[in-house]
Simulated scan of single mutants.
Amino acid sequence: MFKPFSTVGLAFAIVFISSCGAPSASAPTTAPAPTQAAAAATSSPIVVKDSRGTVALDAVPSRVVACSEEALDFLITLGVQPIGMCSDRVAGATSGSVFDRPYFFPKDALGTPVFVGGAESPSLEQIAQLKPDLIISGVWAEEANKRMAQIAPLFIVDTATPDYWRGPLLELGKVFGREAQAQQFIDEYDASAKRLAAELAPVTACAPNVLFIYSYAATDGTMLLGPRWTGSKPFELFGFKVLAPEGYDLSSGALPVSPEIVSEVQADIVFVLRIKTPDGEIPHYPIDDLVASLKDTRVIYQGVDSTRGSTAPYTDRFALEEIGGLLKEDGAATATATP
């Protein structure tokens, strides 16, 4: 299943071909790091709702396996360190060993989980050896979920829903006895989004229409990301309109397209997402020549960390801060070289 990267990468190369004024307010405040305190044990049964229905637990779990970056994101947000993790986005990790590869999530928040394979094809034997009392996975790993449910209670997250990641975060807050922390995160996220929307109002007023392109290969590697792409939600909170060109079926959120689409759609801003090279650079692809020829369009090249998941609480808070800082600090008059 294609899971496009979330809204903002760690590095940007920006081209502003046409501009409008940017606000001068201060950058958003970074939220405090997640606490490392373990959840207290309880003798009362815990019953919560996930994307399938209800999940029943005998007590607060202390041995949790997270089977995707998105699942892991919820634990990071709540300050819970997993004993095991799965990932389809990392290279060079040794299955059955402590994970020690470069990663999007901070090391002190991640802890020392054992790597147990890919998110959609984890090692059931290694997961069972960890003796988890909870496994968190995603709806996209349907076959793996059926097998993991035989090992331990399984909580399945789905962020492509009307309530976004809020519902799963609140339910997992109940699981770990951290309801207040989950609600505080949501309140702070909403407050940041509201503040940034006000600060960025001059930008959205003159450049409201955004076209998202995921450019993942030099040839035959262009993906159109539409309003149902979960990574578009923070931009909508800022007041931008994510374009869904007529004639393109974006019901799944993403669609392979020809690079020529960038010249066919009237957009005020074009975001071109691209995986960075190992040395942190954004490679040059033929589509760059097309976007360079656009008139009255603001183009942003977004360098993407390949180990970063799609939408989830911690990742999206990072996105809010990054995109807000980008538009405020660089402003509409900034210009740098194309990749």
Rank of each mutant, 00 (worst) to 15 (best):
Y189G: 02
A332Y: 01
D163F: 01
V257R: 12
D163W: 03
A119L: 04
A141Q: 13
S215Y: 11
Q126V: 10
G111H: 09
Q302H: 10
S306R: 15
D50N: 08
L225G: 06
A37C: 07
S51N: 04
A41Y: 10
K174H: 08
C20R: 01
L250C: 12
N145C: 12
T311F: 12
K328L: 15
R166G: 05
V175W: 01
P286N: 11
A193G: 06
V80L: 04
F271M: 13
D108I: 07
T7D: 03
L290Q: 08
V114R: 04
A66Y: 01
R89S: 12
E171N: 09
A332W: 07
T315H: 05
L172G: 05
V242E: 03
E120R: 09
A332H: 00
P278K: 10
V55C: 07
E264R: 15
S121I: 07
F5G: 11
I127R: 05
S97H: 11
Y189R: 09
I275L: 13
V98G: 07
G9Y: 10
T77D: 00
L134Q: 12
P122N: 12
L78D: 01
E125Y: 07
D88N: 13
A217T: 08
G231T: 11
S258K: 12
L211E: 06
Q126H: 04
D50C: 10
E199T: 09
A31H: 06
I151N: 05
Y103G: 02
A180T: 13
M1E: 14
G111M: 06
V47H: 09
F155N: 05
L255F: 09
I323Y: 04
T54P: 09
A332D: 10
V60D: 03
P32T: 00
A254K: 08
D330S: 14
D305W: 02
P245F: 12
E142N: 03
A197L: 07
K241A: 06
F105M: 11
V15Q: 03
A128Q: 11
V15H: 07
K328R: 14
T219G: 03
F16G: 15
S44T: 14
